[in-house]
Design a protein around this nucleic acid. Sequence first.
DNA 1: CGACGCTTTGACACAACTCAACAACCGTGG
DNA 2: CCACGGTTGTTGAGTTGTGTCAAAGCGTCG
Lengths: 241, 241
Amino acid sequence: MPTTHFDSVLARKLNTFLTLTRQELTCLAEIQSAPVKMKRGQELVQEGQTGHKAFVLQAGWACSYKSLSDGGRQIISFPIAGDCVGLRSVLLRTADHSFLALTDAVVSTVERSHMMRCVTEFPRLGAALLWAASRDEAMVVEHLVSVGRRSAIERTAHFFMELAERLMLIGEATETEFKCPLSQFVLADALGLTAIHVNRVLRQLREQGLLTVRKGRVHIQDLAGLRSLSGFQGGYLNSRR
Amino acid sequence: MPTTHFDSVLARKLNTFLTLTRQELTCLAEIQSAPVKMKRGQELVQEGQTGHKAFVLQAGWACSYKSLSDGGRQIISFPIAGDCVGLRSVLLRTADHSFLALTDAVVSTVERSHMMRCVTEFPRLGAALLWAASRDEAMVVEHLVSVGRRSAIERTAHFFMELAERLMLIGEATETEFKCPLSQFVLADALGLTAIHVNRVLRQLREQGLLTVRKGRVHIQDLAGLRSLSGFQGGYLNSRR
DNA sequence: CGACGCTTTGACACAACTCAACAACCGTGG
DNA sequence: CCACGGTTGTTGAGTTGTGTCAAAGCGTCG
């Protein structure tokens, strides 16, 4: 039974791109299933799976990743509240990556057919979803740049800068602090490093007075320093036009 | 003056995803400008530029990349004939990466407004374009996995496997051989390595009887060996359903 | 013919990885 | 309440893959 509260996290996000009409909000509310609770460690989509749904993360932390034959994995992204997961997989019909809850989380599902209908009936919604997808792709591109061309410390700093900005946009971070339940192992799999090296890098960041990570919280201590170290340019995250 | 030949490279590509109607083919032909010749080394889009167009590469080789403040760059992708460039940038209104012709090339431009109209009038075309964009994103994701978690030699092998498959799909490669005008410097910027190290890696691949690169041509000598070395799974490139 | 771009090779340096050990933390069950 | 095992974080020592610097070989094109 679909929920009909207009103010879903997804609606709030798309609304920053263009102002949605009442009908569009209704449609958006209708295609999302009732919230489903996920336990930490639960997999929602597995690589290679077909016929699955898309998801909207309502609360909690998750990651999408690809596994390698040697047991390693590369984390592609960390969806946070309001982010869509698996839009691409739904289109390609078969999932090209896995999706895992990192904390207890809440998601809504979106049927392929519902989404298709919604997009054809409300082209502006289609445009908004496309914008969201474009933003996600821009993040993956920036991630690729980090891993390909930035040193471990630059890359780590850049990662936290981006995360801080994303969390600020949804009101989950202040200028100086935010919650971040990512272990060093998880960070390592995202940054293309070893957990041990992540630890050393975090120590460097701390010793240089830039940023501290403790007990699941990140404190930003020198924003300007982090920006210049990482070369972070947040333009790709905003909907300013 | 728009060309009206139905059989553009883009049409051929989208046709592998779903069979296009006569009207859709016409629309596709109409939104593309007459072919424009590009000289090797010419930039089509620069990072940060606004108000630009999207492109369809008709012939030749190009790359999209992001520059870093220290002068380095990360190449994101190598568009080949039939590929679209800058769909995302057009949506986000401001280009988030640059685009450069690596050989003399031919492109058509697509106006933002034309594309938008085309998508709203012909939803199936929208779906097809979305499919193409999804495929591109899947390639970027795979690229990220390579750079983040594969060794230099695995990554290089993977790159050539993917390239071979893409070129085969447009009839520009045989099972064992294809043209590839990419210098070792360019490869390095794509693979997150140094040109010097690319050279060493290519030597290893040659000495192990896997693959040789000479005079702008790649010869695949041990497909099975390359597959198992690189872990290449080409599923994300196909339109099979 | 010289100049330039690209490739190849060698010697060396260093960033990040591996292995190993231990400390801190946390939820669980006795 | 404490004891416990498992997960996560921390640190050191040694290794290795890749980067850096330097120089020479080769084609190609003007």
